[in-house]
Nucleic acid binder design. Sequence first.
RNA 1: GCCGACGUAGCUCAGUGGUAGAGCGCUUCCUUGGUAAGGAAGAGGUCACGGGUUCAAAUCCCGUCGUUGGCUCCA
Length: 650
Amino acid sequence: MSTKINITLPDGSVRQYEAGINSFEIARSISEGLARKVISTKVNGRIRELVTPIQEDAEVQLLNWDDKEGKKTFWHSSAHVLAQTLEFFYPNVKLTIGPAIDQGFYYDVDLGEEVLSEKDFPKLEQKFLELAREKFEFQIREVSKSDALAYYEKEHNEFKLELISNLEDGDITFCDHSNFTDLCRGGHLPNTGLIKAVKIMNVAGAYWRGDEKKPQLTRVYGISFPKQSMLKDYLHMLEEAKKRDHRKLGKELELFTFSDKVGQGLPLWLPKGAALRERLENFMRAAQKKAGYEPVVTPHIGHKNLYVTSGHYEKYGEDSFKPIETPHEGEEFFLKPMNCPHHCEIYKASPKSYRDLPVRLAEFGTVYRYEQSGELHGLTRVRGFTQDDAHIFCRVDQVKDEFKKVIDLVLYVFKALDFKNFTAQISLRDPDNLGKYIGDTANWEKAERDIIEATEERGLKTETVYGEAAFYGPKLDFMVEDALGREWQLGTIQVDYNLPERFELEYTGSDDNKHRPVMIHRAPFGSLERFVALLIEHCEGKFPLWLTPEQVTILSISEKYNETVRNVAHVLNNYDIRALVDERAEKIGRKIRDAEIQKIPYMLIVGEKEMNEGTVSVRRQGEGDLGTMEIEAFAKLVNEEIEAKLQEFN
RNA sequence: GCCGACGUAGCUCAGUGGUAGAGCGCUUCCUUGGUAAGGAAGAGGUCACGGGUUCAAAUCCCGUCGUUGGCUCCA
């Protein structure tokens, strides 16, 4: 006897089917075209196999390649084929986990003594496709916990055994295709044949469960596609992204460099880069002045005890440079890894009344941290960097308001610099590991609430991540992706009840009693180094006009007009426009090409006509000829463009 | 720090056991040209560094340093 069930589709329509129907049949009942495209399905919110029978009323969402979750299914299934491929070449391989990631998938395996390197990629890809073309069906089956354990006992796979031991009996499934079996929750393509293209991207060491005390596995990264042409497009896109890499552009545009002789992770700012950085600092100084910050200056080193007091020594001592010892017995100084302890001492330099708060102390403070060598990356992770740091000391009742003001400042900065694609991430405690945080629970809860409310009241779209809070307090981070899609933290706002406690900071309240202020750490750029790196990648080296090293280059048609060209530069300099001249004995086409490559926003061309008329022929980088205008008119154009972008901070 | 790869001229890279190469850049000369590369000549390298194998090493092996893609941590 058959039962009818109701299937609700994402558009809200309800269709009736026999119980036991599967998603693929539903797709085919709608249209053949849909059936051809569908690669996965979500039943009541959970990814399932297309062939999983549905027995009861359900919401069904059919997924194809264009859905994010469809891609995940595709890539997860690909990870199975990768594992099968690895088993073919390395029969003793121990499989661990093989998830889909944002761009493809990986599989972590224990290869024992064997080594896998790039040279092996072509043969892996070839075998992978050979296997895929067999159109093996993925079949999911339930396994009892004891059977599952027995299976991997026989395989001597301690990793899978560990995974299974953490699973509930009755909730364990294996997935088979061809002669290959893997512990797997499910959500697969119907068969391997849909995978038409694969590229093994790289191989890397990865610790089991991300713990460096646990064995290191070999992680093989790959990406796969339903069409060969999509792989080609993807690889082309990666090539394009590499052109935006700040390390490449930083070199080409002469912004910064590194020297082995100075040391790893210690950037050297070249004149053009330093000037750009100085403009960024001045921009921030002006905004902060309006926002009520007071600049302070503190030294590059601090007494060891300062960091013992702050708690940083205990927490980050390992990540610091070795202490600096003085001739005085037992006296140790540290290169400062952060500015806050110094600022606490400035706060303490004079007694404070509740009327004085908030106190906002700002400093472009250069700090030094001993990052592991493998961590260093261009300007985004270095060992010496400058934070646009400030600490706000305020009353508990002022926290939310101060927090909102900082959000305004960060958004102002991002707007002036055309950062549109950022995510605001609220980092809260890890509910499963509350022990690793210091400070009073009630304070933590208040701080977390203040942050959430401040972002809500500012209408900021946020993502909440548990477990990412600093050890001393919750925070709001502004994250931006680099050219290769890796996410970096730029701006940060952090509430801290801990340091005021440790430094015994006080103010006198209206009740004439002593009270503890709250601290807010905040840095809109985060670090100048990282910020500039991300800025370079976002604008491909074409900086906003107000910021760019050279705003205008003046090109003479021939050497006969060099004197006129120098005069034009002189006039523009008087308008505070950064102009340089190209007096080389080159043809104009060549001079234009070079200026275009150097990404100089404006080119002014001066020849016979312009010399006689007192005009310049204007060309915009990337756009072309804008026609002829008077020099003053051009200066006005430049300054108006800058003003339009650089609205004042209010 | 660990795993993989890489290190040749200022830059980008070719050269994989037998006399160190190209393009761009740089210098000099010719050319004085109107919107993305004018021509010629020249200078420039302990092939990252140290050791080993070999008649012979940029090339093969070992170590060190640096860079790089990941893992972990963080701004």
